[in-house]
């Protein structure tokens, strides 16, 4: 996983608090435990959003909330007909670190669609989005179909339990997904070679 917590070290936070406290003279009655209370509040705020460290083509390193990166990838996946993103895990790679990303996805697919060409469409869309939206290329995009859904049914309910009347379709799609999962390894290796 690529998440890097944005939590600052306590030492750094304490230094900022000390600096701030030096800028005014609080009432002694007010200042009892003040630094620790401020530290606690700031630590909670600062640790809310995990971030991913990336580097632009010009070599400028920056951090971006991981949720933003996931959102870009998720939108690209969901734009492919018959595919819905489940887990999305971007990992910074490359030299310098973060100049590219590896993406590992799990998806739900609509029953009856052919996985191999659809997976290629997903790879294409995700790669285009990462370049277009982030400006960062993908070195590999691994896709695992973990579930199937039937149009109009409860998405995600069919893979494990099967919706009433949809079990045959879901079962057929699951077999197909399993068949493609074997092909996925080949496709992934191809993607890695790019």
């Amino acid at each position: 996983m690529s998440d890097e917590t944005s939590k600052e070290t306590d030492a750094h936070l304490r230094a900022v608090i000390e600096e701030y406290m030096g800028s005014f003279e609080p009432d002694p009655a007010e200042s009892a435990g003040l630094r620790d209370r401020i530290l606690r509040i700031v630590r909670e705020d600062a640790s809310l959003a995990p971030s991913t460290r990336l580097t632009t083509e010009r070599g400028n390193a920056f951090r971006i909330s991981t949720a933003t990166v996931r959102g870009i990838i998720r939108d690209a996946v969901d734009s492919v007909d018959g595919i819905r993103a489940r887990s999305v895990n971007p990992k910074p790679v490359g030299d310098p670190e973060g100049s590219a990303v590896e993406v590992v996805l799990t998806v739900a697919m609509r029953a009856g669609i052919s996985f191999a060409p659809t997976a290629e469409a997903v790879r294409r869309r995700v790669a285009e989005s990462l370049i277009g939206e982030l400006g960062i290329p993908a070195t590999s995009i691994d896709i695992t179909a973990e579930d199937v859904f039937v149009p109009g049914g409860d998405e995600g309910a069919t893979g494990a339990a099967g919706a009433a009347g949809a079990e045959d379709a879901a079962g057929a799609a699951t077999e197909e997904a399993e068949g493609v999962a074997r092909a996925e390894g080949v496709a992934t290796e191809e993607a890695d070679d790019d």
């Binding site: 609080p26 401020i38 700031v42 600062a46």
Partner: peptide
């Protein structure tokens, strides 16, 4: 961080606080 500290201090001391967020230079 500085803005967070200033805002947190204002909360703790129930004072007015919160300058508009700015670029943090130190």
């Amino acid at each position: 961080l500085r803005d967070l500290v200033a805002t947190a201090a204002a909360r703790v001391m129930r004072r007015e606080g919160g300058e508009p967020p700015s670029v943090d230079v130190r």
